[in-house]
Design a protein around this nucleic acid. Structure first.
Length: 430
RNA sequence: UCCUCGAUAGCUCAAUGGUAGAGCAUCCGGCUGUUAACCGGAGGGUUGUAGGUUCGAGUCCUACUCGAGGAGCCA
């Protein structure tokens, strides 16, 4: 079994074999430096004429970027080697050489990189982002399990528009039509009445013609749902999850964050928890103070969200939006029915809304009335209404957008880098 | 759908309306410690498409195509 490059430092003075891809080749007259990567790290391999078989010497001079290699040699600490350890090559097998690799160590434009996304993934920045993405997905699920949540997968093919508002991708379902899920929430509510605390995690689809750095047509959402729970419970769980996640990443993904040049100081406050909780009306005042006048009843646009978030040093909850501005299932505040028990979590530094949720309507008649008011056909929601006929209870949940969260945590310019193969308004390739 | 900006070598970019260039990549040569190595040489172009103005258009005008950022909508 070959050694992974990140483990080489512990094998100084020993022979080792590594397998990987050529990042760069620097040639002297009788000495060559091969930088190799294998997904766990990079290492410099040194080839000297006369110290390797003649065919290895010849082949080492003909290698192209991204050639795949198996190299064996002596692991030797050396101040001159990047990372402090290098591999003195004794032998090398060329698994595959190449030519004219499109992505060079120089600058490239976005369109070019997106066209070569399948190769772009090999760059150190993309590696770091994908590792952090994996950490986030793993950690959040582990943490939810610790809190007693059960993962219940919701369907991706759905029979009709669940929320009515957003545009759905339509697909053929034999003689019928089906739509790609835009949220697993309604199904989560059914599952929560079975298991108490549940979450779903999977891709969601929005056929909106959005073309900004915060939008994808296909993105991943983590949606917890709790029976016998309130708006306050939602904020408690969100704050606990996010702050624990930030602490986890600062500890476990420090080197990847460093690769991305993400300053840990920018995340220190979020790691501390204690996220401010302000009402929609308080948020209106904050926006107005920053020069953004929003009329009561209107939702915040992106510039307003950014201004509100900028007033705080950590993520901020904005709760109790106008009922009319939110989805039909949001529970109106019993004391003020014109606002509902909803909450958005806004990330700092202009990253905007990363989570949205709230308390759901549990009263059958109120829910029917809200469906009617929004012009939604009751027969489409028969099973959803059933949840209020038998064993109904106050329940609440939220959806956390993985890509926006990742974008914020990594300090990225655009969510397109947070998902391996982004689906954008004008891009379905590769 | 709307607003703004853009498209020149494989890539990133230059070029007062007057002979289309550079760096990187590629190929050839040199160099025994390189760090985005360096030095010398070579090849590489229907300037997004179609029209127009002009003695002359990469440059000015019109339309279209494609892309980027933003708005709306949202996570």
């Amino acid at each position: 079994m070959a050694t992974r490059i990140r483990d080489l430092t512990s094998q100084a003075g020993q022979e080792a074999t590594v397998q990987g891809w050529l990042v760069s080749l620097r040639k002297g007259g009788k000495i060559r430096f091969l930088v190799l990567r294998d997904g766990s790290g990079t290492v410099q391999a040194v080839v000297r004429e006369g110290e390797v078989p003649p065919e290895v010497w010849r082949e080492s001079g003909e290698l192209a970027q991204e050639a795949s290699l198996v190299i064996s040699g002596l692991v030797r600490p050396d101040q001159r080697a990047p990372g402090g350890v290098e591999l003195v090559v004794r032998n090398m097998a060329v698994v595959a050489n190449g030519a004219d690799y499109p992505i060079t160590p120089k600058e490239h434009g976005v369109d070019f990189l997106m066209d070569h996304r399948h190769l772009w993934l090999r760059s150190s920045r993309q590696e770091a982002i994908l590792r952090i993405r994996s950490q986030i997905e793993l950690f959040l699920q582990t943490e939810l399990a610790r809190l007693g949540f059960v993962r219940v997968d919701s369907p991706i093919l759905t029979p009709s528009a669940c929320e009515g508002t957003t545009t759905l991708f339509e697909t053929a379902y034999f003689e019928d039509k089906a739509y790609l899920s835009q949220s697993g929430q309604l199904y989560n509510e059914a599952a929560a009445a079975a298991l108490g605390r549940v979450y779903c995690f999977g891709p969601t689809f929005r056929a909106e013609k959005s073309k900004t750095r915060r939008h994808l047509m296909e993105f991943w959402m983590l949606e917890p749902e709790m029976a016998f729970a309130s708006l306050e419970d939602v904020m408690d769980v969100e704050e606990r999850l996010i702050s624990a996640l930030v602490r986890h990443l600062l500890a476990e993904s420090a080197s990847d964050l460093a690769t991305l040049e993400r300053n840990p100081e920018a995340l220190a406050q979020a790691a501390a928890g204690d996220f401010p909780r302000i009402s929609y009306e308080e948020a209106l005042a904050v926006a107005a103070g920053a020069g953004h006048q929003v009329a009561w009843g209107d939702d915040f646009g992106s510039p307003e969200e950014t201004a509100i978030a900028a007033a705080f040093d950590r993520p901020v909850f904005v709760h109790r939006y106008p009922t009319a501005a939110k989805a039909f299932y949001m529970q109106p505040d019993p004391e003020r029915p014109e606002v509902c028990l909803s909450v958005d979590l806004l990330a700092p530094e202009g990253y905007g809304e990363i989570a949205g949720g709230g308390q759901r309507i549990h009263d059958l008649e109120l829910l029917r009335r809200r469906l009617q008011e929004q012009g939604l056909p009751e027969e489409d929601y028969r099973w959803y209404l059933d949840l209020r006929r038998w064993g109904t209870q106050p329940h609440a949940g939220f959806g956390l957008g993985i890509e926006r969260t990742l974008s914020w945590l990594c300090g990225l310019e655009h969510v397109r880098e947070t998902i391996p193969f982004p689906r954008l308004l004008t891009r379905l390739y590769p």
